[in-house]
Amino acid sequence: MGPLYPLGIISDEINMLIGFFIGIGFGFLLEAAGFTNTRKLAGVFYGYDFVVLKVFFSAGITAAIGLFLMNHYGYIDIQSIFYPKTFWIPTLIGGGIMAFGFLIGGFCPGTSLCAAVTGKIDAMVFVLGIFIGIFFYAFTYEPLWETLRNSGKMGKVNIADWMGISDGLFIFLMTVIAAIMFFAVTLIQKKVTSKRDYQL
């Protein structure tokens, strides 16, 4: 019965070690999929490379299916794992700020870190920027952000419940939509890249 660490089945040290190994897998895959190349990342918005969308959705869907089935068959208690609480206003605004960050800087935190350690100078600057951003946020937290960050509180909300359908149906619909999207973006990519060479 999982999750093992929150239920006290494995120790602190083992947990950290597992975190390290899971991190290796995550980092390896991000790099291997091409997430350290900022041009490939930004391509999703200009139609010449959809790797972000493909990796992102297959990862999310795999996890959703896996966790749903594990919960269903009693291997994990989904209630005791990390479940992001919904604060819709700051998430929407923060997401908007991150959209600008992505379009201007060309990375997100995880990918920039991978890119920085594999020698991309632009990514190193991006990571530096993130730290500056967090420092700025931290020191202006009370006057500028605190109220906003805690507004729009909805608690732990499951999107399927929120839409009034079952989890299984939601996962199925999400996967079907993703599959159609995968097919569509492959066509778009072919069309866009046939017109000119993007020199990735």
Binding site: A64, I65, F68, H72, S166, G168, L169, I171
Partner: peptide
């Protein structure tokens, strides 16, 4: 996989 989830659900 998603069909499986949907069916057991």
């Amino acid at each position: 996989g998603s069909l499986w989830a949907f069916i057991v659900n």
